Computed example of a mutant assay.
Amino acid sequence: MKCSGCQTESKDLNYYTCSNSSCKDVYCSTCSKTPTMSTSRQKLWVCPSCCAKTKKGGDNTNTPIRGSNESSNLNVAPRNKPIAPPSQKNEENSGNELKELTGEVRRLTQLISSLKDKLDEATQSLSKCHVRLEELASSMVAADDRIWKLEIRDLELSELKSSVVLLNQQLNSQAQNHLKNEIEISGLPENTNENLNHTVLLISKKIGVELQDREIDWVTRVGPRRLPLSGENKSNFPRPVVVRLLRRSLRDQMIKAAKSRKNLNSSDFDIQGATLKVFLNERLTKENRLLFREARILSKEKNYAYCWINQGNIYVRQKEGKPAKHILCHEDLERVFGDINSKSANP
């Protein structure tokens, strides 16, 4: 089949014939451009030559559509509408769009660069946080170990304190047991050339106890010497006299007899100085003396009827018929009298 458009022999099976009854020219699919048309339009298709004759009213055989047989240019295509060159306005629009696109790409590049920098900073910060967390974990382990050691140390200290308190109580008990043969006499005026052995013998005779000089181990005043106060017949309270006897039973007998004589005073023994009441008591250690003093103060505040000493031991009793309570330490005062820190009376 020879195409009337390109004047070449074509083996194309898709050829198309002009619908004009007076033409009947055959064109290949490339020259006719009918494959892009619908089937109904293909049936009504008119070749370019017939179209030219119809529009211009004459023969248009010299158009580039057909060409002569002697022409060597065989690649003749059907006449198409020329493509108009792009206008200046379109070029400017394209240039502006390109500039905007370039600007957007530049901004995106800067944003990506900034995000990359921030990501690097975040990575470094996370690395530092990781190192810090490891240090904190190590510190917590060390702190836990230290706390555990401190708890063990506190337990040991508590045990040691309990042991020290127990040892002090034992030492105080032994010291008090060593004083069980001694009597403390208070209220005897102090003179320069006094004879304390003779005074003790007079006191024993006054209270009705037979005491001989050989039964006295030693007699002395205890405590620092006190200076007399200024003024006539005024002096400080004299230092107590301590008597150590060879027999404990004799000491107990003298203390019991002195308690029955409530109005015993220094004028009964012809001692120079101010007239003072004389008391005979068991001698106590310093700890027991302070504890007994505090127990007497609390007994008055808490309305306890009795507070006394027996064989170096301190006892209190709320009233007649109630059991006696033994006071060994300050903890016993809290146990017996309750809260001893809120004392209303002054000692």
Rank of each mutant, 00 (worst) to 15 (best):
K2W: 04
S4W: 02
K11M: 08
T17P: 00
S19E: 07
D25P: 00
D25Y: 01
V26W: 04
Y27A: 01
C28G: 06
C31R: 02
S32C: 12
T34N: 07
M37H: 05
S38Q: 06
Q42S: 09
Q42H: 03
W45K: 05
G58L: 05
D59H: 05
N60V: 06
T61G: 06
N62S: 05
T63S: 13
S71N: 06
S72H: 10
S72N: 07
R79D: 11
N80L: 11
I83A: 15
P86H: 02
S87C: 15
S87I: 05
N90W: 08
N90D: 11
E91A: 00
N93D: 07
G95A: 15
T102G: 13
E104M: 07
S114K: 14
L115M: 14
D117Q: 10
A122P: 00
T123R: 13
T123E: 10
S127L: 13
R132W: 02
S138Q: 12
S138N: 08
A143H: 11
D144N: 06
D145I: 01
K149F: 04
L150W: 09
I152D: 10
I152K: 09
R153T: 07
R153N: 11
D154L: 08
L155Y: 05
E156K: 07
L157Q: 05
E159K: 06
S162K: 04
S162G: 04
L166I: 06
Q170W: 04
N172K: 02
Q174V: 10
A175V: 01
N181Y: 13
E182I: 02
E182G: 01
E184D: 08
S186A: 11
L188M: 09
E190D: 10
T192P: 02
N193G: 06
N193F: 12
T199L: 10
L211P: 00
D213M: 07
T220A: 09
R225Q: 09
P228F: 13
L229C: 03
E232C: 09
N236K: 13
R239L: 14
P240N: 12
V242F: 03
L245N: 06
L246E: 13
R247F: 15
S249W: 14
Q253T: 14
A257G: 15
A258D: 10
K259I: 04
R261I: 15
R261V: 14
N265C: 15
F269R: 07
Q272H: 11
N281R: 09
E282F: 09
R283L: 09
N288V: 01
F292E: 09
F292M: 09
R296V: 14
L298H: 03
C307K: 02
N310C: 11
N310E: 08
N313M: 14
I314H: 03
V316P: 01
V316I: 14
P323R: 12
C329A: 13
D332E: 10
F337A: 02
G338F: 02
D339L: 04
I340R: 01
S342K: 13
S342R: 13
A345L: 11
